[in-house]
Design a protein around this nucleic acid. Structure first.
Length: 225
DNA sequence: GCGACAG
DNA sequence: ATCTTGTCGC
């Protein structure tokens, strides 16, 4: 049999076509409801085992309402531009496991600031049908001028002639983050909510999810030794 | 051909 | 992301 799926080398041409198709389903428009439940999600992967964590907080990110941890097998490799095929399934499951569906979700990666305008935050946003914001710690595509050093400074992220996101200084003196629309929100709102929920460099719900995922992996490693 | 390249 | 604790430098 030669027609088996080969985890090592996915059909990227086919996936690019799929991304363009799904990118057309992304809705960029103002929030229709004031978010009451905000969430952040992150995934850590070690040797085919992925742990996704979703943390739900109040609208200011100060009170944690819920933390869900979900394990999943992952075979898709990391390929720049195709991260969502590796991480989106686990994130979607983790968010769906929350008892209260969030009105806004922060995703650790790009939204529309992607070569085909379909980063991880868009993928998750389309699958869940909720507003999502992509907050990435580094750039995937686009050009930008360094924003001012103070927290709150911004600079547009531009690809060709299109503004695909915003480079945002969320912490004075720290490297900026790359904010873009995931789904059902505008770029301006995405930037405002990112600043609102960020106390350190990345949004609080995301930071909490990140730390919880790290603890979960460490725990599993200790258990296996 | 040469860089760039989310997590 | 991950390998990995303390240590070198401004």
């Amino acid at each position: 049999m030669t027609a088996c799926k080969t985890p090592g080398r996915p059909d990227l041409d086919q996936l690019r076509a799929l991304q363009r198709e799904l990118a057309a389903q992304v809705i960029e428009r103002p929030l229709t409801h004031e978010p009451q439940v905000v969430a952040g999600a992150d995934v850590h992967i070690a040797g085919g085992e992925a742990v996704a964590v979703a943390v739900a907080t109040d609208a200011d990110g100060l009170m944690v309402r819920e933390v869900r941890e979900l394990w999943r097998h992952v075979d898709f490799p990391y390929i720049p531009g195709f991260l969502s095929f590796r991480e989106a399934p686990a994130i979607v499951d983790a968010v769906n496991s929350l008892e209260a569906k969030p009105n806004l979700l922060f995703v650790d990666g790009q939204g529309r600031a992607h070569p085909r305008r379909f980063g991880l935050a868009c993928h998750v946003g389309v699958m869940l049908g909720i507003p999502t914001i992509g907050v990435a710690k580094s750039k995937l595509v686009g050009r930008y001028a360094e924003p001012g050093r103070e927290r709150g400074s911004t600079a547009p992220l531009v690809d060709r002639t299109e503004t695909i996101g915003m480079v945002v200084r969320t912490k004075t003196g720290a490297p900026p983050v790359f904010v873009s629309v995931g789904n059902l929100i505008t770029l301006e709102e995405a930037v405002a909510w990112t600043l609102r929920l960020t106390r350190d460099r990345i949004p609080d719900p995301t930071l909490r999810a990140h730390q919880q995922a790290q603890r979960a992996l460490a725990t599993r490693r200790a258990r296996e030794s």
